[in-house]
Design a protein around this nucleic acid. Structure first.
Lengths: 254, 254
DNA sequence: TGATGCGGGTCGACAATGTCGACCGGGGTG
DNA sequence: CACCCCGGTCGACATTGTCGACCCGCATCA
């Protein structure tokens, strides 16, 4: 296998670096962070800028991500078949459950949110499409970890960081959670990622019965749970939605 | 100036090609479209795939954009200062006007939507963040063309495509529209982009009084207009919002 | 007001690097 | 069954990206 293209790898590393660092970064920052010569870094940055992937603040000379990325990211969503099929079903899910609905897929070591329907009330909410969520603490992530072998190996290699006091952090315990998830076909997150927030999710399959994503709802624990855990009505709604999307993708009936 | 990096330019061209073509593209399609050797194209695609910018359908072998682009595009929004400042003001604008509010910036030959607040009713709407709109026919685009010299030169070089029967397509007439826009400080679009849809927009300035974007509302012509054109209440609301965002960016009072 | 250091940007030589086109192997089609 | 199309590989070649020293403007500080 003829090696991957070095300059591209470096460009990608620069973009990720810029995406990570909250603030804009200067040329020297970038160069030293990646161990590259300034000249090299400059060449890559200039090309990226020319292509619109990076923008430079004219006064400070510092760099940040560029608008073209937003446009391309949007195009990604346009072609995304799973998302397209799920649009109407998640809409119904949010309506019937009264909570925010999410559609997530595995991406690297996390869940990438590819669709998000706001909770149907007039509160101010921020769109989370494009955001990442952890695999080990969210309902979406647990579902993917339980049903998708790739997700499972990703989560097995990473740390189970304690995001709240209720996060499951020991690998053995987490495996049991995944067992339970596989057994009942859905996963819950009871204040394991954010205090006061609970979520439920179920897997979505494609025509070959392979897991390709997860749908779920997330909301305040007081609304989503009763004394026995997640409200049965919500679990049923989420699972129905997941089945509907799967059927829409050609997975047939269960 | 030492030339830009060839492989990066080519990679960017491939990404744009994939973003443009609705469908997934095969290796040979990409190679022939860009006039590259298959081997070269394959190397670039493989690297892009490895970095998550491109995904390959395992059965057909065809390529499409990758999830990393969505994540990076989202990060772009996180750092975007104009958008951050505009969040609450556009929210108020949508509330008070009862229409969908938009925030757009110049990108290449169009307006890139960086924020979009849904019309405050329960209708099903699709988020347009990341989408592009034409410069010559939308209110946002006219505002940018009128106040931003770069936008003006972009629109002057391009075609004024007729999107509806009411689109202004002759350059002289369009210049008059821009004159009017500069004179009164806002622009309108009366069914010039989509039939039955009208919009109003006003410019946003940064601390150096340079135009950096535009805010506006868009809605059904029956609601947005009265017999004399755009409703005066809407124009006032949009201009107030634009001033508020500008002030927030440090442009001071007018 | 001059010296100093830092940061972004440029230059030119060098060879590592990406590119090219011929060549596989497989899956669908006539 | 033969053909063709398509994704993918290989190795030689020279183009291309890389490196590190250098330049310049700005802000800081004496």
């Amino acid at each position: 296998m003829p090696g991957p293209i070095q300059s591209l790898e470096r460009a990608a590393a620069i973009l990720r670096l810029l995406a990570g660092g909250e603030r804009r970064l200067g040329l020297s920052d970038v160069a030293s962070s990646l161990g590259l010569a300034k000249g090299t870094t400059h060449g890559i940055l200039r090309t990226l800028q020319q292509e619109g992937f990076v923008e430079q603040d004219p006064v400070s000379g510092k760099y940040q991500l560029g608008a073209e990325l937003l446009r391309l990211g949007n195009s990604y969503l346009d072609v995304h078949e799973l998302r397209a099929r799920a649009l109407v079903w998640t809409d119904d899910l949010a309506r019937s459950s009264g909570e925010a609905a999410y559609l997530g897929v595995l991406h690297q070591q996390g869940v990438l949110i590819v669709h998000h329907v706001f909770r149907p009330d007039d509160s101010r909410q921020v769109l989370e499409v494009g955001a990442m969520q952890p695999l080990h603490s969210t309902a979406l992530g647990k579902v993917l970890s339980a049903f998708d072998p790739v997700a499972h190996s990703e989560v097995a290699e990473g740390e189970l960081a304690a995001l709240t006091p209720r996060t499951v952090t020991d690998p053995a315990g987490f495996e049991q959670v995944l067992e339970l998830t596989r057994a009942r076909g859905w996963a819950a997150d009871l204040e394991e990622t954010w205090d006061g927030v609970a979520s439920v999710a179920a897997p979505v399959y494609d025509r070959r019965r392979m897991p390709v994503g997860a749908v779920g709802v997330t909301g305040a624990v007081e609304r989503v749970c009763d004394e026995s855990g997640i409200r049965a009505r919500l679990v049923a709604a989420v699972r129905d939605c997941a089945r509907a999307v799967s059927r829409d993708l050609g997975a047939g009936r269960f």
